[in-house]
Simulated assay, not measured.
Amino acid sequence: MAYASSITALYQWMKRTGRKTKARVACFITMSESFPDDARQGIKDLFGCPVISRYSNQECGLISQQCKLGTEYHINTASFYVEILDLEKDISVEDGKLGRIVVTDLYNKAMPMIRYDTGDLGVMSHECECGIHGKVLKRVEDRRVDFITATNGDLLSPITIINAMWEYSDLLQWQFIQHAPQEFEMKINCTSDTYHREKEMLKVLKSYVGKDAEIKVTYVNETPLLASGKRKSVLNSMLSL
């Protein structure tokens, strides 16, 4: 069990160095962050075991866990009542629509939490590939403060940028930051003084955040860890202030 970014770093290192392993691992469990699809499949191929993500927080504990047969998250309905509310209003949204994950804790004797806004975004569904009926989280996105805004005002999930950057897995590390509505910064750590695919990378990024976006490239020796131990790939400094 580890942060998704830590397991992603392990996969990238093994891929870059060509390392193989005979380690017997029953299962990888990721938590706290979105896990890119390419890294998930890569870990499955390298270790020959399933990769399951959990959705939890410090306030409530384990809220849901990904199904072994699919990608949906089965909700711990014995302990929590989970709702998806509109991004701006306290009303429920229909299945399949992105909204705020709001939790009511059914088993907290010390401090009842009723309709607690977790700060995370997700999508609800009532169908899972395993056939079990009931509410499931079809997707769990990152915290709302980690979302960035394209120059046209569209809200972009960090996983959109993360998946796009898998094309540039030869980078040792990278971090994409939004400083203003049209101002972005890409911090990269690579094996040379300049990155030979920089122009191509910027063109791809602008296809998501806007062709009129200004993206500054900064070369660093290492992208910083947060106090929590996480290493965020996408940050919105406008919302984090």
Results as ranks from 00 to 15, higher is better:
Asp142His: 04
Asn189Gln: 12
Tyr11Asn: 13
Asp120Val: 04
Ile177Lys: 08
Asp193Ser: 14
Tyr219Glu: 06
Glu129His: 05
Gly210His: 06
Ile114Cys: 06
Tyr11Gly: 01
Val145Leu: 10
His126Ser: 13
Lys206Glu: 04
Trp174Gly: 00
Phe147Lys: 03
Trp166Leu: 04
Lys187Cys: 07
Tyr81Leu: 14
Asn163Cys: 07
Ile215Leu: 09
Ala4Asp: 04
Thr194Met: 11
Thr30Cys: 04
Ser92Glu: 15
Asp37Trp: 09
Ala4Trp: 01
Asp170Gly: 02
Glu88Val: 12
Ser64Gly: 07
Ser6Ala: 09
Leu239Gln: 12
Thr21Ala: 06
Met113Arg: 14
Cys49Phe: 05
Met31Ser: 00
Gln173Ala: 05
Leu98His: 05
Cys49Lys: 13
Leu69Val: 03
Thr77Arg: 10
Gly134His: 13
Met14Glu: 13
Glu88Phe: 07
Gly153Val: 08
Ser125Phe: 07
Asn57Thr: 02
Pro181Glu: 08
Ile75Glu: 03
Thr218Gln: 10
Met186Thr: 08
Leu155Thr: 06
Glu129Lys: 08
Leu87Gly: 14
Trp13Tyr: 15
Ala227Tyr: 02
Gly229Glu: 01
Gly134Phe: 11
Glu183Trp: 10
Lys20Leu: 15
Gly48Glu: 15
Arg16Asn: 14
Phe176Ile: 05
Arg143Asp: 03
Glu59Cys: 07
Ser32His: 00
Ala150Gly: 14
Arg197Pro: 00
Lys199Pro: 00
Glu127Leu: 07
Gln178Pro: 05
